[in-house]
Design a protein around this nucleic acid. Sequence first.
DNA 1: CACGATGTTGGTAT
DNA 2: CATACCAACATCGT
Length: 275
Amino acid sequence: MPEMPEVETVRRTLRPLVVGKTIDHVDVWYDKVIAGDPETFKQTLRGKTFTAVDRYGKFLLFRLGDLTLVSHLRMEGKYHLTTWEAPVGKHEHLQFAFTDGSALRYQDVRKFGRLQLVETGTEFQQTGLKRLGAEAGSPDFSLEYFEKGLKKKSKKIKNLLLDQTLVAGLGNIYADEVLWQSKINPLTPADELTPAQVKRLYEAINKTVEEATRLGGTTVHSFLNAAGEAGHYQEKLQVYGHAGQACPRCGEKFVKIKVSGRGTTYCPFCQKEEK
DNA sequence: CACGATGTTGGTAT
DNA sequence: CATACCAACATCGT
């Protein structure tokens, strides 16, 4: 489940593998991974060279000069470098075959991930990128911005953290972690958080994203970076995946509930409703 | 064997 | 507009 620290880790490991490489051709083995017409996608990319790999929130942005390839890994999308002729695995859906004989492949067990080709400069209008809020840990994500945004929303804080509109980058794992760290009940309406809670949550978000990125992300199911390596933040998780175990802070047992359909683990003692 | 849970975004409904 | 809900999928556990 690549959240922002995982996607950033992918970006860092991917960049040296693809920047400077020229596409000879693209093979698509599962059309639906392409948003738009797969034939156009293949034709347009022929002869193009990867110039950079950027990221915003959980979106990867492969730059090819005037073109930008927007890629979202969703649940289980992965990239790795191989060769044109390597046997095509069951879950490999596409490859960029480079002129030097190597190939970048996209693999996705769940087939939820998507790739979309857009003109560079339009990516923040045309794709899911346009609704994204400030990135966790970025200069745009100031305490003031966060406070003001929370005041305008009545939805449950857990849902708001997940919907990417106020703060981009958190998924289900980090959302549960930061709410536990800041002692906030996941069901609390965003506009009812106290100033002290807001400050704790803000600091927890920045600290967690920074540390998780530094440790190469979290591998709980299957996350691997573009070099095939697992992350290490799973060793730091205090809440996610710990339902039924004792809260390290107070000893109460963590419980797991559904919040708008999403599994949510929290401590019923430390994270009581209201302040 | 059938069914529910998993998790992210986007489309649709209210 | 804001919020809620479900679909898109494959795999695993009950």
